[in-house]
Amino acid sequence: MTFAAGEPTTLLLMRHGETALTPEKRFSGSGGSDPALSETGRRQAEAAARLLAELGPVHAVVSSPLRRCRETAEPAARKLGLDIRLAAGLREADFGSWDGLTFAEVRDRYPEEWTAWLASPSAVPGGTGESLDSVTRRVEWSRDQLLARHTGQTVLVVSHVAPLRTLIRLALGAPPESLFRMELAAASISAVSYYGDGSASVRWFNDTSHLR
């Protein structure tokens, strides 16, 4: 992967706001329901939009096509005067039959699958879901497209836990198991800058100060 010289390209990585499933710690992937933001989630999206409008120039807004991300991106796009571009590669992982279950329910009902998923990025969750290796491939492709299209700019990326953790993991050069050691709260903002020499720097992580 190569980057143009000059100003870094910065991706502001925002997780979508809460849905009804978020506080219950239920799997909510791309293969099941497509929940809307809850009232709390809508308030979180508005609070994040106010912060983003104060940060300085944001040149583009890119969102997962799933409803909870589009609804999170809309207030920020309005305040920034930008359109939202949808990127299918930034959708959440497909969790197969785990979708809608709590983490505890998955551990109880599918203990062998759960253990395998935690141990290997090639494991397929929920029988018909998407491995983390597959998520990584499409997220890498989406990242490279963004960097090529927005060289030297700042881009707001509204997505989900698995894709955002993956972007941060790749920037750090961390192993796949690090994905399970990151906390990304609803409507949190992280930031990664990509430089002309090919290096990347994680500048913020899981910032929720705008929600207080």
Results as ranks from 00 to 15, higher is better:
T2K: 10
P8N: 04
L21M: 12
L21S: 09
P23G: 07
G31C: 12
S38G: 10
A47W: 02
A49E: 01
R50G: 13
L66A: 03
T72N: 00
A73M: 04
A77P: 12
K79Q: 15
D83A: 15
R85F: 08
R85K: 09
R85I: 09
A87Q: 14
A88P: 11
G89S: 12
A93F: 06
G96F: 04
W98L: 04
T102G: 15
E112A: 08
E113F: 01
A119T: 05
A123P: 08
A123S: 14
V124R: 06
P125V: 06
G129D: 09
E130H: 03
S131A: 12
T136W: 03
S142Y: 03
D144N: 14
Q153V: 02
V155H: 01
V157W: 05
V157S: 07
H160R: 03
H160W: 08
L164C: 11
I168S: 04
R169F: 12
L170C: 10
L172I: 05
S178E: 07
R181E: 14
R181C: 09
L184W: 03
A186E: 10
V192I: 13
V202P: 11
V202A: 11
R203H: 05
W204I: 09
N206M: 11
T208H: 01
S209L: 12
H210M: 11
H210R: 06
